[in-house]
Simulated scan of single mutants.
Amino acid sequence: MPSSTDTNRPNEVKPSGTFSRSGALGSVARSLGDLKAKAGEAEKLEEKLRDGAHVIELDPEKVDPSFLPDRLDVSDDTFSSLKDAIAENGQMSPILVRPNPGKSGRYQVAFGHRRLKACFELGITVKAIVKELSDTALLIAQGQENSERTDLSFLERALFAKKLESQGFGREVAMAALGIDKTELSRLIAVVRELDDEIVEYLGRCPTIGRKRWMDFADALKSPGGRKRCLNFIREAGERKQDDEKCFIAAYKAAIGSETFTGTKKNHESLSWYSPDKDLVVKAGSGARKGRMDIRADKSPEFVSFLLEKMPELYADYSNSKKVT
């Protein structure tokens, strides 16, 4: 009798290695395997998209801008250079988008608006990272990316801060998005509150104008007649023929009442008055924003005191005369 360990038993039947893969049952098994593999791949892809770790190519026409833009829509040389670089070397850095919460099958940009525009104009797909983002997360990502690249001018940062405030986002969101503290945020908002849309449109991005000059400009607009003088100048200037900095300087000079902003100079009006007895001489000079009186006489201290006492009455007479005219 052969032993139970004998492997050369002639009557032993072994199952076929192809049994489970043959016939109808084999087809079903293969289909299930394929579906399982595809489901696994889809799950991995979705996970990568959720984590923002996978770059895909999108049709630019299916990508919408951020619901709160942080750039002024102006043409400049830097965009032309970016477009030329992408045309020559391809898009080196992907943009960040999220599925558009209001439009099925579309996306919304968090950052990379100029790269998206360049790809659209070139007629090529845009490389993008797709990530699920809340409104707040999108705005913070949008602001931080541009702040790190120092792409935004002071004016654009100020306008973005104002938009965040007007949309009901807390100041903490604005500080996180722009990477600034509470003091700097207050300065940005204080400046932009003085700017009319007409002034912003005329000035452009003003990338070379920093915080100090913007604060001076805001103060000039708040001065008596400052805003009116600036707007009158802009309306008379018509179409821009200068770069941003020259336009800023011209608008600032108009706001402070400088006599040089229109290119013409007016002579200071010089006036003199003598008392009948010639004992008192008053000389006055008037400019765009200030006047000066020089009173000369031995009696001048007494006359000055008398004049100051009469000042309320004189000013009332002046105001009434302006209302009549």
Rank of each mutant, 00 (worst) to 15 (best):
K290A: 02
A250Y: 11
E302H: 10
A237G: 06
W273H: 07
M293T: 10
L271T: 05
S223C: 04
G238A: 14
P224R: 13
V282W: 00
N232Q: 07
C247A: 06
G263N: 13
K228A: 14
E239R: 12
G257M: 13
C247T: 05
E236L: 05
D294F: 01
R296T: 07
Y274H: 13
K266V: 11
N232V: 00
C247E: 01
G287F: 05
D277Q: 10
R229P: 08
K246I: 00
D294R: 09
E239T: 12
A251Q: 13
A297E: 05
L231G: 00
D294V: 10
D279T: 14
Y252V: 02
W273I: 01
R296G: 00
P301H: 02
N267L: 09
Y252M: 09
I234A: 01
K266C: 03
D298G: 07
C247H: 04
K253T: 07
R296M: 04
G285D: 12
G225V: 15
A237H: 06
K253Q: 15
L271P: 00
S272P: 00
E302W: 09
W273N: 08
S305A: 11
F233K: 05
G291K: 10
H268C: 03
G263E: 14
I249T: 13
K241I: 13
S258I: 15
R289T: 13
V282Y: 00
S305Q: 15
K241M: 10
K228I: 11
W273E: 09
F248W: 05
D294M: 04
Y252S: 04
R292L: 10
A237K: 13
N267Q: 14
S258T: 14
R240K: 09
K290Y: 01
T264M: 10
P276S: 00
L280F: 11
K299N: 06
E302I: 12
G238H: 15
G263P: 09
A297D: 03
F233P: 00
K222T: 06
A237T: 12
R240F: 02
T262N: 11
K241W: 03
P224Q: 12
T264N: 08
S275E: 04
S286N: 13
K299H: 02
D244C: 08
F248E: 11
G226C: 12
K253R: 15
P276E: 01
R292N: 09
R235K: 15
L271V: 08
V282I: 12
E302C: 01
V304P: 11
N267V: 12
S223W: 03
E239Y: 09
E239S: 03
D277H: 12
A284L: 06
A288L: 11
S286G: 04
V282T: 07
